[in-house]
Lab assay of single mutants.
Amino acid sequence: MKGKVVSYLAAKKYGFIQGDDGESYFLHFSELLDKKDEGKLVKGSMVHFDPTPTPKGLAAKAISLPLE
């Protein structure tokens, strides 16, 4: 699924993505496929991810940034 980063707290390594389906997904650095892309996780960045339901809500897994 595609989505847009709505927040990312680099110090805490987490944030949120708004998916194309309108839902909010929890984003964690550990799910970023290329850790070098962390600096690109800023508000408004477009990402691809696997939407995954968890006991705490919806989460983004296997997060990647589109090729530039």
Rank of each mutant, 00 (worst) to 15 (best):
M1E: 04
M1Y: 05
M1G: 07
M1K: 06
K2Y: 12
K2T: 14
K2E: 07
K2W: 13
K2S: 13
K4M: 12
K4Q: 10
K4D: 03
K4F: 14
V5E: 02
V5Q: 00
V6W: 08
V6A: 09
S7T: 12
S7C: 14
Y8V: 06
Y8H: 02
L9T: 13
A10N: 08
A10D: 06
A10W: 11
A10K: 14
A11V: 11
A11F: 10
K12L: 11
K12N: 09
K12R: 12
K13E: 03
G15D: 00
I17C: 03
I17G: 00
Q18M: 14
D20S: 10
D20L: 09
D21A: 04
D21Y: 03
D21F: 03
D21P: 00
D21V: 02
G22F: 05
G22H: 06
G22S: 05
E23A: 11
E23H: 14
S24N: 11
Y25P: 01
Y25S: 00
L27N: 00
L27F: 15
H28E: 05
H28M: 07
H28S: 12
H28W: 06
F29G: 04
F29W: 14
F29H: 08
S30T: 10
S30F: 09
E31V: 03
L33F: 05
D34F: 07
D34V: 08
D37N: 08
E38Q: 06
E38F: 05
G39E: 12
G39H: 14
K40N: 08
K40Q: 07
V42K: 13
V42T: 11
V42Q: 11
V42R: 13
K43A: 12
G44F: 04
G44T: 03
S45V: 15
M46G: 06
V47H: 00
V47W: 04
H48C: 14
H48E: 12
F49M: 02
P51H: 04
P51G: 09
P51I: 09
P51Y: 07
T52N: 10
P53E: 13
T54S: 08
T54C: 08
P55N: 09
K56W: 13
K56N: 10
G57V: 02
L58F: 09
A59K: 14
A59N: 06
A60M: 00
K61I: 09
K61Q: 07
K61E: 04
K61H: 09
A62Q: 11
A62V: 06
A62F: 10
I63Y: 01
S64C: 10
S64E: 06
L65H: 04
P66V: 15
E68C: 12
E68G: 12
